[in-house]
């Protein structure tokens, strides 16, 4: 049953923030900090939307090792991410690239702001006075004023 498989996965990834495991750590604390920074942007491909910084899965461990080795070899963040994308596709990045295909994703929220601002400006410009009461409304108002049932 799928549900149980899922729970098994959940239970498997329980011991988390796995990247802090001292057995994996780089000797240079500055490099280690840099590697940890990169981990947070890299997805554990087989997990439920987790970064390799969190996940205890086998694959996450392998990816951490790759990143740590490259950090140790002096490569910078962009190079390492490039390497991972070439190998695993853009899926590996938790921060999607600002490319044309992702335009809606990055621009969408700010378009909502612009659209809202435009609508608001139009509303503020078009400050035509309220229309006169319609005949029916005037009638209703009169009845209310005279305390008759509306």
């Amino acid at each position: 049953m799928k549900l149980r498989a899922l729970f098994a996965v959940l239970a498997g990834v329980l011991c988390i923030a796995a990247a802090s495991d001292p057995a994996e750590r780089l000797p240079d604390p500055r490099q280690e900090a840099q590697a940890r920074q990169i981990f947070q942007d890299i997805r554990c491909l087989v997990c439920q939307n987790e970064s390799i910084d969190d996940s205890d899965a086998e694959l996450a461990r392998d990816l951490r090792q790759i990143v740590r080795e490259q950090v140790r070899a002096g490569r910078d963040e962009a190079e390492i991410k490039r390497f991972l994308i070439d190998r695993y596709g853009e899926f590996v990045l938790l921060r999607p690239s600002m490319s044309l295909g992702n335009m809606a994703l990055w621009a969408g929220p700010f378009l909502v702001v612009l659209l809202g601002a435009a609508l608001m400006l139009r509303r503020l410009r078009n400050r035509t006075p309220e229309p006169e009461l319609s005949a029916a409304e005037a009638e209703r108002l009169k009845r209310i004023a005279n305390d008759e049932p509306a």
């Binding site: 997805r43 853009e90 990045l93 938790l94 921060r95 295909g101």
Partner: peptide
Amino acid sequence: IREAATGEAISVGPPYFNLTF
């Protein structure tokens, strides 16, 4: 949507929300 449209899988994680939300 992107995967359905283009077949390319991407991930959206906390870094995206930190930059927009």
